[in-house]
Design a protein around this nucleic acid. Structure first.
Lengths: 190, 190
DNA sequence: GGGCGGGCGTGACGTTTGTCACCCCGGATT
DNA sequence: AATCCGGGGTGACAAACGTCACGCCCGCCC
């Protein structure tokens, strides 16, 4: 509904035409390859595939296509990943709707469009202190209740899992897994 | 942005006029009292106050005003609460945008508008098996890492907290707090 | 070549957690 | 009067958790 509504509004702009819409992250690249848009507007949380992942591949497949990320959650980690992935801009859904059209125009003009407050937050928070493995274990810990489960799912020894978790918890200043997950999610590191 | 976009679209409909918009749940009743709308369209997750809570009070303050809940998450528990609170309809944001206007018209006509699949899910899942206290403790456990913290925050003995948690975990078929919270959230019982 | 960090593992240790049995109380049901 | 349920509490116990020290390997970098 949201996508449809925004598309309708954008189509009312005389200089903007919506040439394609998809509902899933894993349909983005195919649709863009077919429609060859000037700008791709991507959400982050999507079924099938993250908007950030889709952006990475889209940037390789259609280098001429400018990418704008439009998301609900202003996690600094998201912003960083988006910019490193070659996005031209990063918008929050709680910005006024008028900003969307102007951001698209500015993206076409070659500017980078980033919410200033969010950019500051991204710089101040720094990037994730977690090693890839720690990140992976913490991620999996959301879906597996016990260390034994976790170890089996990751093909690791239970001891190693606990070591990774313990190390992650120290880095995140948390007193247990659950808190570590919360903190990591808040900072956009998960 | 989403609210603004939907409002713009609705204003394009000849028979619909958007008379007020607010961004916070705790501003709903005041705005409605000033604008006296025929229909109130409420999200659930809002800063300040839940849309469901706002709906309850709105139904008391302006009984003539029809209430439509428009939300991202189709949790059966949400639906139940909304209907018990006197809402005229319950829409999901992933429905097509065209359905929104028609739902508003049907609400004015006195119909109840509910996503059929969601209604079935609500009936099949049943309501929360948790006692009020268990619910409360589980809710608080999201923000307090240890039992000791939890006990202090709720003015309870640590043992009692663990008893409540244990009982909740059994009812939710979970092996620890974190899993219990996940399950309860999924079912819309939290 | 040596140092360093990441990944994987083990063993030991103390703490926390989850479970259970059992206690009391008050209100509602029968 | 007896029963049940929700709430609050205690004490004990085993299991799970989080921490630490230590070992090994590999790759990178000075």
């Amino acid at each position: 509904m949201v996508r449809g509504a925004l598309a309708s509004l954008l189509n009312l702009e005389p200089d903007i035409e919506v040439v394609a819409q998809v509902s899933r992250g894993d349909e983005v690249v195919a649709a863009a390859a077919a429609a060859i848009p000037d700008v791709a507007l991507l959400d982050i949380e999507m079924p099938g595939r993250t908007g950030l992942d889709a952006a990475d591949e889209l940037a390789r497949a259609l280098p001429a296509c400018r990418i704008l990320i439009l998301t609900t959650f202003g996690r600094p980690g998201y912003l960083r990943r988006a910019m490193e992935g070659g996005a031209a801009g990063f918008l929050l859904k709680d910005a006024p709707a008028s900003e969307l059209a102007s951001a698209i125009r500015r993206a076409i003009a070659g500017e980078r469009v980033v919410d200033p407050g969010l950019a500051a937050a991204a710089l101040s928070e720094g990037e994730s202190p977690l090693t890839p493995r720690e990140h992976e274990v913490l991620l999996a810990s959301r879906e597996h209740a016990t260390v034994a489960d976790l170890a089996q799912a990751l093909f690791l020894s239970p001891g190693t899992v606990r070591n990774h978790l313990s190390s992650a918890m120290q880095k995140l200043d948390a007193r247990n897994r659950a808190e570590a997950v919360r903190v990591a999610e808040e900072k956009g590191w998960l």
